[in-house]
Structure formats: C-alpha cells, structure tokens
Design a protein around this nucleic acid. Sequence first.
DNA 1: CGAGCCTATGTTATCGATGCCATGTGTAAC
DNA 2: GTTACACATGGCATCGATAACATAGGCTCG
Lengths: 338, 338
Amino acid sequence: MTEAVARSVRQPSMADVARTAGVSAQTVSRTLRDSPNVNPETRRRVLDAVEQLGYRLNNAARVLSSGRSFTIGLVLLQSGGYYSRSAVTAGVEAAAGHAGYAVNIATIAGLDTGLMERALSKLADQGVDGIIIAVPLISVTQKMEDITRDIPTVTLDGSRTAGARVLGIDQLEAGRLATQHLLDLGHRQVWHVSGPDEWIEARQRLQGWQECLAAAGIDAPPALEGDWSPDSGYRQGQIIAMIPDVTAVFAASDEMAFGIIRALRERGRSVPEDVSIVSVDDIALAAYCSPPLTTVRQDFYRSGQAAVELLLDPDGANASVVPASLSVRASTAAPRSH
Amino acid sequence: MTEAVARSVRQPSMADVARTAGVSAQTVSRTLRDSPNVNPETRRRVLDAVEQLGYRLNNAARVLSSGRSFTIGLVLLQSGGYYSRSAVTAGVEAAAGHAGYAVNIATIAGLDTGLMERALSKLADQGVDGIIIAVPLISVTQKMEDITRDIPTVTLDGSRTAGARVLGIDQLEAGRLATQHLLDLGHRQVWHVSGPDEWIEARQRLQGWQECLAAAGIDAPPALEGDWSPDSGYRQGQIIAMIPDVTAVFAASDEMAFGIIRALRERGRSVPEDVSIVSVDDIALAAYCSPPLTTVRQDFYRSGQAAVELLLDPDGANASVVPASLSVRASTAAPRSH
DNA sequence: CGAGCCTATGTTATCGATGCCATGTGTAAC
DNA sequence: GTTACACATGGCATCGATAACATAGGCTCG
C-alpha cells in the first residue's frame, strides 16, 4: 500500500536506480542502452535495481538530452479507404516498433492545404524524427517545404516535396494490369470510374488505363470520377447503365466497384454476363460479396513497412517499389459473342 | 540558403525568442501558453519574434518540465475489423486533437497477455497522460494493473482493470436489437455466428441474443464461433447450410455475414427468401453488396471521441453510452409461410 | 619495465521550458 | 497618505537523461 502511494508520488529516476545499485547514473544509462563497456556483474546489479524500483525511463528527458525522439509521424486522411488506411497504419507501426520507434498519428479531415500544414506542424512540434505522409499533397506550400526540409519525410503516394523521398506503389501498373485483363478477355473498350483527381493514386491508375488502351489502339472514353466510396460508385454506375454498349469497366477501388455493380443490376445489366468489372485493392470482402470481385491486390501493410524502412535507411538507396498483382474472380468474363 | 543551414544547425529556443523580443524567456512562455497576465503590446512583440525566427516549441522540454505530455496512448489490434478500427482511431484522434492532445498508437498482433503488457509498457515509457484500450483484455496481469493504476485509462470494450474506466458501447443492446428484429418478422428461431470468445463485444452480443430468445420463450441453439473475417463466416455458413430448418441468422459482424450469405447461396439457399440475415457494424459496403445488409449500426467514430472525452473528464461523470440502431435493408424478410 | 591503450566507471555541463518566488509598478480602499 | 492588491515581468532552480570529458586500473608490446 505504502509502496503504491510512494510510487504515485514520484516515479523513480535514474539517480535512484544508481543509488540502489551503488553506481553512477551514467553507468545506469549505459546499461540500459546496451553500451558495450559495462561489466556483466555491474549490469546485473543495475538491472536488479531497475526491477526492484519498478524504474521506467523518462522519455521526455531522453529526448531532450539526446535530441532524438524515436518517434515517427504518420499523416493520414480521416475518410475514405478504410481498409488501406488501417493496413498502412499497421505496417508502419509494426516496422517502426521493430526499429524501436513509436508512431504518432495526425489525421486530416480533408485534402486541404491548411489542414495539411497544421498536421505537419503538429508533428514537427511533437519533435518527430521522421514523417510518413500517406495522403496526396495537392499543392506544396512554403511552410510544408520548411518542415519536410528539416525532418526526413517519405510520401507514400508519389507527390513530391523538396527533401521528401517517395515510395512508389506502382499505380500505373495497377491500372495497366486491370485494363489489360479486360482486353485479354476480348473486350473492345474499357470504361473507367476513377478516384478523386487530387489523389495521385487515382491519377496514376487512370493514366495506366489510358496508356494500356492507347497501346491497343483504342480511344479511351471519358473517365467518370468517384470519391472512393461505394455510394459514388453507385452514382457513376447509374450513368454507365444508360450507355448501351458498355461491356467492361475498370473501377479505381473495390468499394466503388460494388456500388457500380449494384447500379448496373438495378438497371437489368448483369455482372459479369453483360458487363465485366475489375477494380483495385482486394479488400477482405472482395472474395465474398457477389459476384466475387476480380481486383488488383496491393499489399498496403507491406507499403507501410517499406515506408518506414525507407525513412530510417541512412543512404536512402532502399527505394523499393511494392508490386501489384491481379486476383481473378467472377466479376469478369469474356464479352457476349454476337 | 544561409538561413536554412543556420536553422538546421540549431532550432531557435525560447531564449532566442526572448532576446529578439527584448523580454525574458518566462514572458515568452507565458505568452505562448495564453497566460492571462501579459500586456497586449508585449504579446505582440513576442509573437512577432516567434514568427520571425520560425520558433517552434520544444515538446520534450515542455513535457520534462511540466510533467505532462499532452499525449494519449491508443491500443489497437492489428487484425480484424478494419472498419471499426479506423473509425475509432479517427474519432480518438479528432477528439484528442481538439483538446490539444497528440495520439500515440500501439498495435498488438494478437490477443496475448505478453503483447498487451508490452504495448502498455511502451505507452507508459512514452509518458502518455492517458490510455485508451480498444481491444479486449483477456486476463489482466499485475503489470497491466500497475500501469493502469498510474495512468488514467479508458477501455472501449467493457473489460475492466483496477482504475480503468469503461466506455459502454451497448453490445447487449445490439444483440437484442438484431435478434428481436428477426423475431418480429415472424421467425421462430434465430441462429448465431458469434465473434471470438475472447472479445467482450462478441460475448455481449451473444448474451443479448440469448436473452432476447429467452424472453420470447425460445431455447437458443448452440452458437457458432467465427473470427470476424468473411472467411470464417463462410466456413460457419457451410455448416448452417446443412441444417434444414434454419430461417434466420444473426451474425456478429457484417464481414462474417457476407461470408455466410455466400456459403448459403452456394448451397442453394437464397437470402432473404430462405434465410434472413442480420449483423452488426454497418460498414460502408453493407448497403451496396447484394443483398443490401440489414445490420445494427454503431457509431465507432463517436465511440472514439467519447473515449477521449471520458478520459479527459476530471470528475469522470461523463460515462456516456454510445447507442446502437438498426438499419433495415434487404437481407431480412418474413419466413416463408407454409 | 615504461609507453600506450583498452576497459570500466565517474563528473560535470547541458538540453529547453516551466514552477515558484521575487520585484516593481499603478490604483483602489480606508 | 498609507495599506493592500491586482497586474506585468524577471531570476533561478529544476525536471531526468545524455554527451563529452576525465580518471583509474589492467594489459600488451617493444
């Protein structure tokens, strides 16, 4: 009882441990940081004292004196892409934790320069050692440049700042894979429901689609723009359903794909008999809704990890690209032959 | 150029600002903390100096001297429930940010006592001012008790530690709502595919289901246990499909529900004609897959916010319960009458 | 056997903001 | 015209760990 009270009065400090172990505070510090020059016997005494006092290193003091916070800041968008967001977060957290870093999250409510600046400032104020930006930067302001110049930064979507390194997730390839799959099945034209134009992912997938069609000598139809949500897919799907000869659609996300499918079905167009649909993400549900979705899988967890590795890599040679692969299921088929 | 170099050499400190503004460091500190007794004219000079030097408050020093970190720790599970997890995170982050707190994430890879202890230790080491635990505590160890005694803690799932306060999300009610809906439609029996038994949410939903059936004088059939994933729903769905007279199933999550639906359909049982399905979550896709899912909506974002509010509420009177509500869609119908 | 070096440890200054106390005004109250 | 008190500000010690430097043995090598 007394012990509990005493503890809540003041946490033991390194000096307390030093006193109990009969050494200097510096030796305690060395022991805890696995410094090489510590006698095994001394080390044991120190660790015993730590255990006995329930000592816990004071992070703030460590940060202040060492100048390093062992914390990585992660900038996320609050809405949209639940799946990819949490997978990225988990990947970042795992890799960071593995390297002895903590993760500090800053979510922004929308793609707005002011919000972005505030998020970066917040992280800078927290003294993070590095920043991972997992949302697209619409336009890069001076203030953002200032921060990313001082603090190592990796962007996960391809947008660039001075000083920020970029982790490529090959979205062009994703767009190409999806489109080519439809062409290979025999479709003569592929429509596209894209993500919001501010998102680099969206633009790159769209570009991959365009390039793939161009390579096949096909004029791309106008792209329809969604906002990643099933609902926006549904709305664009209603438009697509009004166009008679559409046989293949590439949707920029699984969630939009399901919205499109619903709209098509309500108009009497079945999937994949009348219209084939491919999308990107491969969320857990993709295989279980009906029809099971043909989709380009991207390993977001791995991307999160890779971002951390890139960030912590001193020579920065580590710019790995996370690959994409196609999961073929039942939402695509050859067009009706007649 | 020179400026950028100078900056990267050393960030300006409060003393630098004080010198430029011609006041003491103490006055700068007061100004930045909106202390009442600062002359407007002085305040302006200080703020000008801050602006001019690009001064940024050193968080570590602030934490060290004030003893408060203005950081909240959030413990999450790495896998499962992507939707709820990110919604909770966003809610926590928003509410925390609003109150001037940062959020520090600790994800654990599984429901394991050791992992949980490590996560809590990590947060404690980071010096967080409070902890929100968004995963169930299977068993509470001494070490966990020690930490949650020292640091204010809120658990978001109903498990209890000494000193931790609990934010009720009324899972019993969710189970009851779902089950009652099926009974109201005329079903005479309701089967249940639950979440993992270690999860309090799962146990409470199950209990709500049992109580509701009991109140109607119905003997509950054995519950089938899943792991929240669509795949586990699919496997349990295959079992259910073998039982001839099942007309209604309550699934503990939307993702499992879609797995169940797939399994039933593959066996020639249609939803909702042959079997009605209700679940819990109301993820974005629930309304867009087919059939649109009847499900109990829970506001996870709001829960996250509420957890922060409860945590920061000094008198703790703020133990609000986040309500659940039923979204009726097309996966439920009256049983075939014959 | 002394120069030189490695190992184990201690001493001291320092990081940057804040808490606490002291000081010096202007002004309201008796 | 004191006493008293709110307001505005400065000085100094302090939080707890670490970097940088210092020291004292023990060992190697020529």
